[in-house]
Design a protein around this nucleic acid. Structure first.
Length: 278
DNA sequence: ATGGTCGAGTATCGA
């Protein structure tokens, strides 16, 4: 089972590239973020034509998250589970696809340390932990993926000194993210690849992509039973290249079937951390 | 990166 996550930074602006990428990569399940669409503008038919059922939780101008699946979608929950203080923005969507509990998230950016939106971000991550506790169990197959707007550790930024004092790297954000993971999730990319400098997002400005000034903030968290079946995981840096790219690259993870071992044998050997290193 | 760019939408704001 191949699961992907991609912050597309406007699905309207990106639909052609997303369609082409789906054909090339053929994921079974896709988590999208920042569709920036209202639900009635979501391109359901375009995805159906490629064999995907889709659910979308959107609001219009900003945010917006979606799940695509080749094998059905049930038990859909928009936003936080009942009983948790609701989010008035469309940043979270949960569904069950082929026996896997799938959650797509677009965590608030935070703007600046100490800004009201920064405190909102920390509270949002605390509520995400409650959401997991409410909707899933760590001994099931659970995947939580998306744009977390937090770089989990210093290997995930180009220069920790240059980033110091900004959002995405503060101890409070990292602790809040670690609390989410402590529910019972593994960052499968970091489990498989330990090197510094493997990024999923690069600012559009100042040629940062070409200078390799980025961050790894797009993450695939899997519950232990699923993480134990990881065959390979990579960042598709090629999707950040060329005309009108998103500022994020997709992350793709392949998991073996439940009765098989995730030792990479199904992939025919070692698979690297990135596509398109140059 | 304190912004050189995008995408929203049409003046600026958010990332």
């Amino acid at each position: 089972m191949r699961i992907a996550t991609w912050n597309v930074n406007s699905l309207k602006a990106r639909l052609g590239r997303v369609e082409q990428w789906l054909v090339e990569v053929a994921p079974d399940i896709v988590c999208l973020q920042e569709t920036k669409l209202a639900d009635d503008a979501f391109p359901t038919m375009a995805f159906a034509a490629l064999g995907y059922e889709a659910v979308h939780h959107g609001e219009g101008r900003w945010n917006g998250v979606a799940i695509l699946s080749r094998s059905g979608i049930d038990q859909v929950v928009d936003g936080f589970a009942p009983g948790i203080e609701p989010d008035d923005e469309a940043r979270l969507l949960s569904a069950t696809c082929e026996g896997v509990r799938v959650m797509t998230v677009y965590v608030p950016n935070g703007r600046a340390l100490g800004h009201p939106m920064y405190h909102h971000k920390l509270s949002w991550l605390a509520r995400l932990r409650l959401h997991l506790e409410t909707l899933a169990r760590p001994d099931e197959d659970v995947v939580l993926c998306g744009d977390f707007n937090v770089a989990p550790d210093d290997r995930d930024v180009w220069d920790p000194a240059a980033c110091h004092g900004g959002t995405h790297v503060s101890q409070a954000e990292r602790t809040a993210l670690a609390e989410v993971a402590r529910w019972g999730l593994v960052d499968v990319f970091r489990q498989r690849h330990q090197e510094h400098g493997l990024f999923s997002w690069w600012d559009y400005r100042a040629g940062n992509f070409h200078k390799h000034l980025g961050m790894r903030i797009d993450l695939v968290y899997a519950s232990r039973p699923l993480a134990d079946r990881l065959s390979w995981v990579l960042i598709d840096r090629n999707a950040r290249k060329g005309k009108l790219p998103s500022d994020h690259a997709p992350v793709v993870a392949e998991f073996a079937e439940p009765d098989a071992r995730g030792d990479g044998s199904r992939s025919g050997g070692q698979v690297g951390a990135q596509l398109g290193q140059t």
